[in-house]
């Protein structure tokens, strides 16, 4: 009985520590860009329904990616990949390019006036401008 209880506690404890820290995400653009963004518009940009800005993603290996897919686009990473595979294999679209690190996203957005990306709020530098914060 006790061992069973312990097992459950351990299991719960284990699953709690397995969840990555949930960060606030800053959606960033080039400082020269005066655009304002709503979450609707963000969804459109990251699902290929708008090309008003050139969206970039962070690599799937980053935990930030799945958090952004959920909070920024409102879908799970798998749903979003299924959505993009519809567009890719019918020649209708190409998903946003992936950059390996948050530093690379900041550098890309700082250098491209039309780019939009996202990083952990704690990683934002003054090379970029925050247009939306997701929490």
């Amino acid at each position: 009985m006790l061992s069973r209880f312990l097992a459950i506690v351990l299991l719960l404890g284990g699953s709690v520590t397995a969840i990555p820290a949930i960060a606030d995400i800053a959606v960033i653009v080039n400082p020269a860009n005066s655009v304002t963004l709503t979450t609707d518009e963000l969804t459109r940009l990251y699902t290929g329904r708008s090309s008003a800005l050139a969206a970039v993603n962070i690599a799937e290996s980053s935990p930030l990616r799945s958090q952004f897919d959920e909070k920024g686009v409102g879908r799970s990473s798998a749903q979003l990949k299924a959505h993009w595979s519809k567009l890719v294999f019918t020649g209708k679209g190409t998903p946003p390019p992936e950059l390996a690190t948050e530093a690379a996203v900041i550098e890309h957005v700082a250098q491209n006036p039309n780019a939009v990306g996202y990083v952990d709020v704690a990683s934002v530098t003054d090379a970029v401008k925050v247009v939306l914060t997701l929490n």
Partner: peptide
């Protein structure tokens, strides 16, 4: 139709 062979898409 367009992606009926792409099983991952549905």
């Amino acid at each position: 139709s367009d992606f009926k062979d792409v099983g991952y898409a549905y």
